[in-house]
Structures are given as structure tokens and as C-alpha cells.
Amino acid sequence: MSGICHRRVVVVTGAGRGLGRAHALAFAAEGARVVVNDLGVGLDGTPGPHSPAGQVVDEIRAAGGEAVAHGGDIATPEGAATLIDAALDTYGRLDTLVNNAGFLRDRMLVNLADDDWDAVLRVHLKGHFLTLKHAAAHWRAETKAARPPAARIINTSSGAGLLGSVGQGNYSAAKAGIVALTLVAAAELARYGVQVNAIAPAARTRMTERTFAATMAAPENGFDTMAPENVSPLVVWLGSAASQGVTGRVFEADGGRITVMEGWRPGPTTDKGTRWTPAEAGEAVQKLLTHATPPGTVYGA
């Protein structure tokens, strides 16, 4: 297969279903050789009887592409390491890492158990960190060996991480952390030829079927705006050599819409030049807020 990712080796985590599956198939359609990672767990992160990673590999191969399955837990150092090794051992190189794996354990904060907090932070945030770390170590070694890569990392955040989402304190915190991790990684890894970006997708998957239940009617004009395949073209382009120079960015993507997100920036400010009293600080804040942009509405509020 030819395409904008011809012969690139791409790793996609959580690629057995939903967005990850769509990404894996889209990369393969553009000529990439794909490592399909999926632990085969349920929506809440507990193990399922059969991993779907092999099914996605079969789909890619049936279409004439190249792919291999990986069933390790990317939220462990061993699982993340073997994922990167799977690409190197099978194809001899690694070009793109797409961090997508995740699950939900939604609760209001007063009902959120410690285990539910830890489990969601573990797979989303730690899972991103560990795979990124092992991939980056490989690309650093390549650069030191005078083989600088055109490497790409695409992380998966969420509107919940940008604005917050009622009943998803653990998920929102993890997804916000992924944005910060993306910015740090983009700055640190640029010297090794690695570009790092994040997406905040909206699509119909197992994780979002309740959220988007009202939008699941038959698509108008033949265009299903909530199909996960709508997000994948942006991910494929970001994962290709064609995206040269684009790094440290966060993109919202859904349907036919792509938005460059602009995060925390200094807004209205004032400087007394010396220490405020509490009353003075409060008065200053009230004045500043009259000139500030109101925050976006928290999802579900």
C-alpha cells in the first residue's frame, strides 16, 4: 500500500475497538505497518475473555496491509517496553506512537472510590507516560547513533480534560494531565526529532455511548458526525512526515470539524508593586474578572 505513511511503523494503543481501531485501519490504509495493542478489557478496565487486537490485525492483512498484535498492559513498565520492542523486533523501526488506551469509572466526587481514581489515572495518564518514555528512549538512542528520526507522538486527551466533566473527576484529571505531559514532551523531545501533539476527540465509542445517546439517530445526508473514523484522518496526518513543524499542539476533532485549542494564557492582570491586603486583593480580582473571558461550561453542568 502507498500513502502518506508508506512504510512507517505505527504503534496504536487501545486499538481493538472504537477510536483506536479506526486509527489503526486508517494508518494501514495509508501504507503504515501497524502494531495493534489492546488488552481486551471491558469498559471498566477489567479483563475480557478475548482480545480484539487480533481481529483488527486480520482486517488490516485482509486489505493487503501489514500488522501485528500486542496484548500487553501498557500501564506497566514491562508492558510498555514490550510494546515498543514489538515494533522494533517485527519491523526494525518505530516512527509513530498513538496513545489511545483508556476506560471509564464514572462517579460523583463524593462517591468516587480510591480504587476508581487510581485505576483511571493509571491507564490514561501512566499508560501515556510509560509508552512515551520507552519510545523516546529509542529515538534518543537513534539520534545519538546519527540516525535522527522523523518521529511522531499523538496523545489522546478529551474535552473533559480541557473544560471538566461532571461525574468524571478522575477521567478529567487524567486527560488534563495528558495535555500537560504533551507540552512537556514536545519541548524535551524536539532535540531528538520527535514531535508531540494531542487530540481531544468527540466520537461514538463504548466509552461515550451514554454521553452521545441523543446524537445516535440515523445520520443526515449520509454523514455520521459521531463516527470514530472522522477523527482518524487528523491523527494519521499528525503521525506522518507531512506534519513537519507541528508540535506542542492540542486539537479538538469531531465530525468534519478541527479546532486548534488555545489553552492557559495570561489574561487581565494588575500589579500593586507591593503586598496586597486580603480586601485589596479581592477588590482587584473583582475588577480583573470584569475584563476576563468567562470560562467554558463544564460538560454536564
Rank of each mutant, 00 (worst) to 15 (best):
V57W: 04
H70T: 05
R107L: 05
A62P: 04
D89R: 14
Q55S: 14
T90C: 09
A53P: 00
L125N: 08
R61G: 04
Y91L: 11
E59K: 04
A63F: 03
L112G: 06
G72H: 07
S51F: 07
P77F: 09
F103L: 05
L97S: 09
D58R: 15
E78Y: 10
V98A: 03
W117D: 07
L121R: 13
L125I: 05
L83N: 02
H50D: 14
D115A: 15
D95E: 11
E66Q: 14
L125F: 07
M108Y: 13
T90Y: 06
A101H: 03
A87N: 03
T90L: 04
N100H: 05
D118S: 13
H124Y: 06
V120M: 02
D106Q: 08
A81K: 07
H124I: 06
I74S: 00
V98C: 05
A67G: 10
Y91I: 09
V68A: 02
G72L: 08
L97E: 06
T76A: 01
H124V: 05
D114W: 09
V68N: 03
V123S: 00
D118V: 07
G71C: 12
V120P: 06
R107Q: 13
T82E: 06
V110C: 09
R61L: 03
L88D: 03
D114E: 13
T90E: 08
L121Y: 09
G65M: 14
L109C: 10
L83S: 02
L109D: 04
V123G: 01
S51M: 07
G92C: 12
D116G: 05
L94C: 10
V123I: 12
V98H: 09
L94G: 09
A67R: 11
L104W: 00
V68M: 01
A86D: 11
D116Q: 10
L83M: 05
V68Q: 04
V98L: 04
L94K: 06
T96G: 10
D73L: 01
R105N: 07
H50E: 15
N100K: 01
L112T: 11
L109F: 10
G65R: 12
D106N: 11
T90I: 07
A119T: 12
L104D: 05
R107V: 07
E66P: 07
D58K: 15
H124F: 04
R61Y: 03
L112Q: 15
D73E: 09
